[in-house]
């Protein structure tokens, strides 16, 4: 068998090209499958938080706990509201008693009195799962119990989760927790059972001030998508490369 240098190089280049192709390049979709793939891509859920409008009433946290059957008095919650009080000397006071479930009715922060004359700015920041495009929590799951759906929401399979807690450690936003009843990891899923029926998430529904809103980022006519695409919005911890899909209006540098 002879093999010229020319032929060898040719074949080697061809082999390198073919082996670099992903397996999916060889899959031939049926018409239905192709249609389904395109149709599913018409929804990508996103979320807009307007921190300028949040008054810290905590109705969202209460509604979330009731809607999603999260034990009401357990120190876990799928969404929470943080209070930031920045004094004139530059110190930031932060608290979130019970995740803001009962609102913020006292001006004491962690039992500390802050002189109102001395406050430079004060605001509330609601937090929830960012439904990242590159979710770190999904990458670390050893059993495939958490995953990203076609419409961008990260879900947890309660039947499949073994409760190892890797995802809870991996989330840079700290939105995951261990569900005390189901003994599995749990987190916000934008009320997947509601948004897939055309309803709003419980937190959005219960917000009296329009501080929390849901967006379909694939629909250019969606009013909330318009705000996200045309106004100046920010995301949390952009530097982690997780591509979060909860956008914030009026985000302050003190918010981490």
């Amino acid at each position: 068998m002879s093999c010229s240098r020319r032929n060898f190089l040719k074949d080697a280049a061809g082999a390198a090209f073919v082996s670099s192709l992903p397996l999916s390049a060889f899959v031939i979709l049926t018409t239905e499958e192709a249609k389904a793939a395109v149709a599913a891509a018409t929804v990508r859920w996103g979320y807009l938080v307007d921190t300028n409008k949040c008054t810290g009433c905590g109705m969202c946290v209460k509604a979330c706990k009731n809607e999603n059957e999260i034990p009401y008095d357990a120190p876990v919650t799928r969404t929470w509201v943080e209070r930031y009080v920045v004094t004139k000397d530059g110190t930031t006071h932060i608290d979130s008693p019970d995740g803001g479930r009962d609102g913020f009715t006292s001006d004491k922060i962690r039992d500390e009195e802050v002189d109102p004359e001395n406050i430079a700015k004060a605001f509330f920041v609601p937090k929830l799962c960012n439904q990242c495009d590159n979710p770190a929590c999904v990458q670390v799951c050893p059993v495939g119990a958490t995953y990203k759906t076609e419409d961008g929401v990260v879900l947890i399979d309660r039947e499949w989760c073994i409760g190892c807690g890797y995802c809870i450690m991996a989330c840079p936003y700290g939105v995951r927790f261990f569900h005390p009843d189901h003994k599995v990891a749990d987190k916000c899923n934008f009320c997947y059972h509601r948004i897939t029926k055309g309803m709003m998430p419980a937190c959005v529904e219960s917000c009296a001030f329009g501080a929390r809103r849901l967006a379909n980022l694939r629909d250019p006519d969606d009013p909330v998508t318009k705000i996200i695409t045309t106004e100046r919005v920010a995301v949390l911890k952009d530097e982690y490369g997780t591509k979060p899909h909860v956008f914030y209006l009026g985000l302050d540098n003190n918010v981490r």
């Binding site: 999916s24 509604a63 009731n66 809607e67 999603n68 590159n134 979710p135 999904v138 990458q139 495939g144 119990a145 958490t146 995953y147 990203k148 759906t149 879900l155 399979d157 309660r158 039947e159 499949w160 899923n189 997947y192 059972h193 509601r194 897939t196 029926k197 309803m199 419980a202 529904e205 219960s206």
Partner: peptide
């Protein structure tokens, strides 16, 4: 399209969709 993010039990999506609505 991703082994990293889309490796799961398909039936779970319907389980979440059937979660009871309260509000």
């Amino acid at each position: 399209d991703s082994f990293t993010y889309n490796y799961y039990r398909l039936g779970n999506i319907d389980e979440w969709k059937n979660f009871p609505v309260k509000y």
